[in-house]
Design a protein around this nucleic acid. Structure first.
Length: 971
DNA sequence: GCAAGGACGTA
DNA sequence: GTACGTCCTTGCA
């Protein structure tokens, strides 16, 4: 018999430190050690052929938890740091690898791998067999037998040494200066700092071997310690005799572990392709699979990946597609499986990262090129750097760069100040503060780093930094964004660094207000003194890096990799460029409108005072309510939730219809003042002095359903419904020599609904290009489309929208001004005419209660933590929102995909067109005049095909595009 | 100076 | 009935 025992745990740790990191391609799971382990096992079996070929074999691992040694010496291995988080998911995988090779994998709680190895080695030797222990652990040297029946084999590759190194008595003598039977006595004296075996302080291997060789063994030495001549050595031995005895117990391997498997059960089994290839495929080890396939004369492609270990399916999930429903089931199972490797990894990264202490005193201030170069070098060594640009404001189109911070490992950090000023209270802002690098020199050094695709830059809100850095001609390739990671995983739940730090790291986030103040006395970051700024900025990068370590692995664990990598991350630079371009606004048109509106508003104001019989603040709903309902005593007033009179437009319209002229006056006045306050007066304030254009800021991470939002100014709510409102659109103009194109999706949400809920009648109508609201009316009310009264169509339109919004009889009645019972009948009829709708709605209601979220066709999750609220109104709200969210969200995903593809497609087609704005289902472009007819078909094609190939919609998507010199005419 | 509420602009 | 952002008033610190 020849028994081969492999020290699996020892191998994993050595592989971890020796091999470069490797991640599974489809989900980023670390698998470097697993791959190394697989290679090692195979190579071992190849190398040990002929007379060294083992007849029995097992791989032994350390089990987690305490061992009997901890019972009598609590400090044993106490200083050992927790396993690196990348290693944690690989522990179970190496066990699985062993089984895949059809080799016994053995571990026992309470025992170290070495004890189990010792036990089997002794058993085999007693049975007259030969034993080879594959390990480079010196603790196992005590087992070596002079007769060669037990040997160690070191297979860890070392430069300049043969690949296989046999360790027999001679090698043990070289290492410990004694024969194997005395190794434990030597170790008892010299101890082991790694395992925290104390030994006798001040005695090393050399002295220990000399003493043991002189006195024969440890007990004799300790008994006769008084005879030793050297004073210090004698006293140490006498004082620490007990420590030496404990140390000996610690290093002595137990040879009588109650092992479960008999020796005979370790007899070698042939490799079975049916066990091997499903594992290798799950790990995505293509090269190993091919090589072993050739050697075993088997086709690796004949086996599917082991579903228990494979990457979670990232494919999007739909409602009406059976294959996708299956994928969803598989993914949810994967998500719920606590022991799944990616889930394990994510949890380990979270734990490990949280445990890293905060050491702000270590943050550095970079004041010269040499120091900056050291940080650039560190980024190259790590392959990544978290970074954050500090600037003078929140708008990256006007703010100036003040400094840049970096972190390459959790706990380190540096700040490169560039634009700090000196001297406060001086209206000229003082000069440049001392001790800062020249901005141009620093950026020249940093440009290659930011552009280097092999170095990952980690931002929090990359869009801001990308847009700011672009103004300094710094291009960024290869980046991650913790804000978008968080949004992909958790939606808009955590929006700020502060909230993320609080939730994931358990530390309070920083407040910029503490540095720059607030209100009138607010400073800019440039005025903050450099040490304080450095502490803040470096910590920001440190936090970003820590958050990244926690959030990135969650993508794979929770099946959100595709969403993040194909939609969220690539969209950020597209938005940054749109923000940077801005749109041209005609100041004169706005000024003329302001004049017109304010004159008319003033007239209405006077009229209102006349009608009310007194002057009051027309802008105060409180005062208006009191005048209408208390003083004038009008009937039919309703109260808001705070008990104030309700004076909304619908209430005033009702009153006007009942012959209250004041109500009409107020409605008109409100419209005009709204247009002035929000648009004609406000927009010119947003014109950028540098570009002469208006630059909105998009928020990619604020909307529950996946839509964008626009702010400062909001260019997604420019008026369109009223004639006066539309005049404002005429002020959004093309630059000289250019023309605007507006391209909008026609009925995108109803089409998405028709697809998701699989409504044949709706799909047919879209296929035939019918007027969808007229078709609905005709189905519901039995009125022919030809010559249909406009009111009938209007009612059907309201119902169609109602369906998208998660219809209720109450809401529909309100909208149409009809009885609730009539609205209920409408809904009933609708469900009868389009039966799939009800199924869809019920399915979403059911899912949100089970899962706490619903999903778009592209796999975006929309969370509803209150789905099972005890508050009935809240529950109903969640039900409606969960019906709407997959529809609105899928439409949002589609236009996001269109935007990501638009620029490369335009370029490919040789078309010069700048994408300027997005308004949920509409994209605005600026193109050279005369090229619009070339641009529009490309734009249409990209938008209409944006769902594919990820999702094949079974309704046609239609985009209408128009070109004109201003937005009103183009729309 | 700030937060909340009401009102209203968009898809 | 869904999803947003902004302006203005009000009330409190």
């Amino acid at each position: 018999m020849h028994l081969l025992l492999v020290d699996g745990s020892g191998y994993i740790f050595r592989a971890f430190h020796a091999l470069p990191p490797l991640n599974r391609k489809s989900d980023g799971l670390p698998v470097g050690c697993v791959q190394g382990f697989c290679n090692m096992l195979w190579k071992l079996m190849e190398d040990l052929k002929g007379e060294d070929e083992p007849t029995h074999m097992a791989v032994i691992f350390d089990a987690k938890g305490k061992t009997f040694r901890d019972d009598f010496y609590a400090e044993y291995k106490a200083h050992r740091p927790p396993a690196p988080p990348e290693l944690v998911p690989q522990f179970p995988l190496t066990r699985a690898a062993t089984r895949a090779y059809n080799i016994e994998s053995i571990e026992m709680e309470g025992w170290e791998a070495d004890d189990i190895i010792a036990t089997y080695a002794c058993q085999a030797r007693a049975a007259g067999g030969k034993v080879t222990i594959v390990s480079s652990d010196k603790d196992l040297m005590q087992l070596v037998e002079p007769d060669g029946s037990i040997r160690l084999l070191d297979t860890i590759p070392r430069p300049g040494q043969p690949p296989l190194r046999w360790i027999g008595v001679e090698e043990v003598l070289n290492k410990f200066g004694v024969t194997p039977d005395k190794v434990i006595d030597v170790q008892a004296l010299c101890g082991d700092s790694v395992d925290n075996v104390p030994g006798v302080p001040g005695i090393g291997v050399k002295t220990a071997a000399e003493l043991i060789n002189t006195y024969g063994n440890l007990e004799t030495l300790l008994e006769r310690a008084g005879e030793i001549k050297q004073n210090a050595r004698r006293e140490k031995l006498i004082a620490n005799a007990e420590l030496a005895r404990i140390s000996k117990r610690l290093v002595t391997l137990e040879q009588k572990v109650p092992v479960e498997l008999e020796l005979s059960a370790l007899a070698r089994q042939p490799v079975e392709p049916g066990k091997l290839f499903p594992f290798l495929k799950a790990m995505e080890f293509v090269t190993i699979s091919k090589r072993l396939g050739g050697l075993l004369n088997a086709d690796p492609e004949a086996w599917e990946a082991d579903p228990a270990l494979a990457a979670a399916p990232a494919s999007p999930v739909g409602f009406n597609n059976e294959a996708r429903a299956e994928a969803r089931a598989a993914r949810q199972e994967a998500e719920g499986r606590a022991g799944s490797p990616v889930v394990l990894h994510a949890a380990a990264m979270h734990e490990a990262t949280k445990a890293i202490p905060w050491t702000p005193e270590n943050y550095e201030i970079i004041r010269d090129a040499a120091h900056l170069q050291r940080w650039i070098d560190m980024a190259y060594r790590e392959g990544l750097v978290a970074t954050d640009a500090e600037s003078t404001g929140l708008d990256n189109q006007t703010a100036d760069l003040v400094g840049i911070s970096f972190a390459t490992q959790p706990g380190n950090g540096a700040y490169l100040p560039l634009g700090h000023t000196q001297g406060e209270g001086d209206i000229f802002g003082g000069g440049k503060a001392e001790g800062q690098m020249d901005t141009r020199q620093a950026l020249d050094m940093l440009r290659p780093l930011f552009a280097d695709r092999s170095i990952l830059k980690i931002f929090h809100n990359a869009k801001y930094d990308l847009g700011l850095l672009a103004r300094y001609d710094v291009a960024v390739n290869s980046y991650d964004d913790t804000l978008l990671l968080s949004y992909s995983l958790d939606g808009p739940q955590f929006n700020t660094m502060s909230e993320l730090a609080d939730h994931w790291l358990g530390v309070p986030g920083q407040s910029i207000k503490d540095l720059i103040g607030t209100g009138k006395g607010q400073k800019t970051f440039a005025q903050v003194d450099i040490p304080a700024a450095a502490r803040y900025a470096a910590e920001d990068s440190d936090m970003t890096l820590r958050l990244w370590r926690i959030l990135k692995p969650r993508l794979a664990a929770e099946g959100m990799t595709t969403l993040y990598e194909t939609i969220e991350r690539p969209l950020a630079p597209v938005l940054a460029r749109m923000e940077g371009r801005g749109i041209s606004v005609d100041r004169q048109i706005l000024a003329r409108l302001s004049g017109d509106f304010s004159q008319r508003a003033a007239a209405l104001e006077a009229e209102a005072y006349e009608l009310a019989g007194s002057n009051f603040n027309l802008g105060s709903p409180k005062q208006l309510g009191e005048i209408l309902f208390d003083r004038m005593g009008l009937e039919g007033g309703t109260k808001t939730k705070t008990g104030a009179w309700s004076t909304g437009a619908d209430v005033l319209e009702d009153l006007a219809a009942k012959g209250v002229p004041l109500a009409r006056t107020i409605v008109d006045w409100r419209q005009l003042t709204k247009l002035m306050g929000t648009y004609t007066n406000a927009l010119p304030e947003y014109m950028n002095a540098r570009t002469g254009r208006v630059h909105t800021t998009y928020s990619q991470h604020s909307v529950l359903t996946g839509r964008l939002s626009s702010n400062d100014p909001n260019l997604q709510n420019i008026p369109v419904r009223t004639e006066d409102g539309r005049k404002i659109r005429t002020a959004f103009v093309a630059a000289p020599g250019k023309i605007l194109i507006s391209a909008d999706y026609s009925q995108i949400e109803l089409r998405v609904l028709a697809h998701i809920a699989d409504i044949q009648a709706l799909k047919d109508a879209f296929e035939e290009g019918l007027d969808i609201h007229a078709m609905t009316a005709s189905e519901m009310f039995g009125v022919p489309v030809e010559g249909m009264p406009s009111d009938v169509r209007r009612r059907a339109k309201a119902i169609n929208f109602g369906i998208i919004y998660g219809i209720s009889a109450f809401g529909l009645a309100n909208q149409l001004g009809i009885e609730r019972s009539v609205a209920g009948d409408y809904i009933k009829t609708y469900f009868e005419r389009f039966p799939g709708i009800k199924d869809y709605m019920d399915e979403q209601r059911r899912r949100v209660k089970i899962d706490g979220y619903v999903m778009t066709l592209f796999g975006r999750k929309i969370n509803f933590p209150n789905a099972n609220s005890s508050h009935a109104a809240e529950r109903s709200f969640v039900e409606r929102a969960s019906i709407n969210a997959p529809i609105q969200g899928t439409a949002a995903d589609i236009i996001r995909r269109a935007m990501i593809r638009m620029e490369p497609e335009l370029q490919k087609a040789g078309i010069e067109a700048d994408m300027l704005l997005q308004v949920h289902d509409e994209l605005i472009f600026e193109v050279p005049q005369g090229t619009e007819n070339d641009a529009m078909p490309v734009i249409k094609r990209v938008m209409e095909g944006a769902a594919e190939p990820a999702v094949r919609l079974n309704v046609p998507i239609q985009v209408d595009a128009h070109a004109a010199h201003n937005w009103d005419e183009a729309h």
